[in-house]
């Protein structure tokens, strides 16, 4: 019981995830700045931002449903934290692995997006409503290629558990090369999930101010921000577990591997963000359905054929 509590609250739960997410936010911002020939923020900047937001007054719009408005950020954070428990960190095994946890994690990661949508919708502000609608429209476009790209390696490994997939590819490291197209699809699609340029339409600052979050302030906004930062960690950890299965037997070394792997993924994601312009919503739909989805389908077919050949 005490151990479970420790796992949920401290490691690898809320506290570790929060600290790692702040570190990730710093790394992301610093790298983004250095890519633009700027100096970038000091290491404590995300923490300072978080603390400052916690101290600010929280304003709830008059027309908003108070209970829903307040509970949505917490809900988003809770979903992300729960998802993290099923992602392997120090070894191939996660804390509570079971057959099918890949699907559970993917669905848990959809909850924050739905929270953004509901948060924007319940804000009853024009900008937030448009942002909310965009978030939902975007969800339908990137979710399909992302799911398919994540499931393709699972088909090859013949298991629906993340730990199983990790273990399988750790045994046959050459098989990862087959999954490279799926890796690329997942990287691009998760830019949509994380709402980063070029797919940051729901919060496009210069168009709809900050979209979904326009009415959120103070503590609630801090929690939302934290949920977004944590989502970045969880998604990169998930991609690292599935597509970069390099593990060590020693848990400390394994933990180091985890950090290296996720940072590599973050660097790639940051490079994506720095080198593109934001696309329009209809361009994003076109791109996801016409390019990413077919690519993911081809990957699944390839993996099925390989599976058949191996059997």
């Amino acid at each position: 019981m005490l151990m479970a509590l420790f796992n949920i609250v401290i490691f690898p739960g809320l506290l570790f995830l929060g600290i790692y997410a702040l570190f990730f936010a710093f790394l992301d911002r610093k790298l983004y700045a250095r890519l633009q020939n700027r100096v970038g923020p000091p290491w404590f900047q995300p923490l300072a931002d978080f603390c400052k937001l916690l101290g600010k007054e929280t304003i709830i719009p008059q027309g908003a449903d108070r209970r829903v408005f307040v509970s949505l950020p917490v809900f988003a954070l809770a979903a992300v934290t729960t998802a993290f428990i099923y992602v392997p960190i120090w070894s191939v095994n996660s804390l509570f692995p079971f057959e099918g946890d890949l699907i559970v994690v993917l669905y848990l990661l959809t909850i924050p997006t739905l929270c953004f949508f509901l948060g924007g919708w319940y804000s009853t502000s024009l900008y937030a409503t448009i942002g909310a609608v965009r978030a939902l429209t975007q969800l339908f476009s990137y979710e399909v290629p992302l799911f398919m790209a994540m499931l393709a390696p699972a088909i090859l490994a013949e298991t629906w558990s993340i730990s199983g997939i990790s273990a399988y590819y750790a045994e046959h490291p050459l098989y990862i090369l087959i999954n490279i197209p799926a890796f690329l699809v997942a990287m691009v699609a998760c830019q949509g999930k994380l709402e980063r340029v070029p797919f940051d339409l729901p919060e496009a600052e210069t168009e709809i101010v900050s979209g979904t979050f326009v009415e959120y302030s103070g503590r609630l906004f801090a929690i939302f921000k934290m949920a977004i930062d944590c989502e970045l960690v969880v998604v990169s950890a998930l991609i690292a577990a599935i597509f970069l299965p390099f593990h060590a037997a020693n848990p400390w070394l394994g933990f180091l591997y985890f950090i290296i792997k996720t940072v590599i993924i973050l660097i790639l994601l940051c490079l994506f963000r720095a080198s593109m312009a934001r696309v329009r919503i209809e361009q994003m739909l076109m791109f996801c359905w016409k390019i990413l989805t077919p690519l993911a389908i081809i990957q699944i077919i390839i993996n099925l054929l390989v599976r058949g050949a191996l059997a």
């Binding site: 890519l35 633009q36 070029p198 210069t206 080198s275 312009a277």
Partner: peptide, 15 residues
């Protein structure tokens, strides 16, 4: 560039 979310080009051209 900034209006369309392309901040990298924005930073370089202003530099």
């Amino acid at each position: 560039a900034h209006e369309i979310g392309f901040d990298t080009l924005f930073m370089y051209s202003w530099r």
